[in-house]
């Protein structure tokens, strides 16, 4: 089970952007959406509130009565700042104000292998435990996924904002493990656009699942393998996340990549072998100290007089 807390960290977004984020989350296999009171107030006037379980992050127990309509209320612990250094417990209440769950949030210095015994202890507690690990040691995805795999509630945020386990990584891991088989493709494009605009961040091109270049391939061995069967070097089909495979030509390319690119650009090179073109590609790539654009490749082949 996944609770996504992206809306807890976009208070600066416009009302419209917050509503769009909520709509994007609605299309993903997320079990509950957590948000702060200001965001809850902003989305309240939506004509039709998406059918979700809403969890409200509150600072005071009395807020349960002030902001009615949520499924659960997480009372932010007074010692919240301590979560940057260690795990802390928070109480989770239902709409009647009854303590019904526990939230464990923060940074742990335990690895996934170390924490398994503690997970067993948490699983045995009377009240369900949701786990919101922080990512300072780059363990959050693995920790959240391990807890999620036990059928428990893990708390994420899109793109891992505010030091969380990235929602998209947990969804893909769960899909590949057969825990949450997706019937539909996942599309993170709009979510990515809004979140990067709101937070003023540039998402790295190699960011797992949502990076722009994760299906770009240059190396000769890999292009050759992918042309035989994409599964050889791809963990899942790019189409599954609405992405496309891109063959890039550069210093580590092989002949197969040249053949593929010629075909892709509808270029004919009957009188010139691909080995000669490849040599030119490598030479030019070394001079430019980067891979070639399609235009540069086109010009190169044209210059060799074989278009």
């Amino acid at each position: 089970m996944i609770t996504d807390a992206t809306l807890c960290y976009v208070d600066t977004a416009s009302k419209w952007q917050q509503k769009l984020i909520l709509k994007c989350l609605e299309r993903l296999p997320v079990d509950a959406v957590e948000m702060t009171v200001p965001v809850w107030q902003n989305i309240a006037d939506m004509a039709v509130l998406p059918a979700q379980k809403y969890i409200l992050r509150i600072n005071d127990y009395e807020d349960i009565w002030h902001y009615k309509g949520a499924y659960r209320y997480v009372l932010t612990a007074k010692e919240y700042a301590a979560a940057k250094k260690q795990l802390i417990r928070q109480n989770v209440y239902n709409a009647s104000g009854k303590k019904i769950e526990t939230r464990i949030i923060g940074l742990t210095r335990l690895s996934v292998l170390d924490i398994e015994a503690i997970f067993t202890h948490w699983s045995g507690e009377q009240k369900p435990v949701s786990f919101e690990p922080f990512d300072s040691l780059n363990q959050a995805t693995a920790l959240a996924f391990a807890w999620h795999k036990r059928g428990q509630q893990a708390v994420t945020s899109f793109c891992g904002i505010a030091d969380h386990a990235p929602l998209e990584e947990i969804l893909l891991a769960a899909h590949l493990a057969g825990i949450v088989p997706m019937r539909e493709k996942m599309n993170f494009r709009l979510l990515k656009k809004i979140v990067s605009a709101v937070l003023g961040i540039s998402i790295p091109v190699n960011k797992p699942v949502i990076g722009d270049a994760i299906f770009a391939v240059e190396s000769g061995i890999h292009v050759d393998g992918i042309m035989k069967n994409p599964q050889l070097y791809e963990p899942y089909p790019p189409e599954f996340i609405n992405a496309k495979r891109r063959i890039i030509l550069g210093s580590t390319s092989g002949r197969k990549a040249v053949e593929v690119k010629l075909k892709e650009l509808k270029l004919s090179c009957r009188r010139l072998d691909t080995a000669a073109i490849l040599e030119k590609v490598k030479e030019k790539s070394r001079i430019l100290c980067r891979s070639l654009t399609d235009k540069e490749f086109y010009d190169l082949v044209e210059m060799m007089g074989r278009v």
């Binding site: 690895s111 170390d114 040691l137 780059n138 995805t141 693995a142 797992p208 699942v209 963990p235």
Partner: peptide, 17 residues
């Protein structure tokens, strides 16, 4: 490889193993 964002956690698990 970091396709699921677990490269560091997996490497830690490898050391522990």
């Amino acid at each position: 490889h970091n396709d699921l964002g677990m490269a560091v956690a997996n490497s830690i698990a490898a050391v522990q193993s």
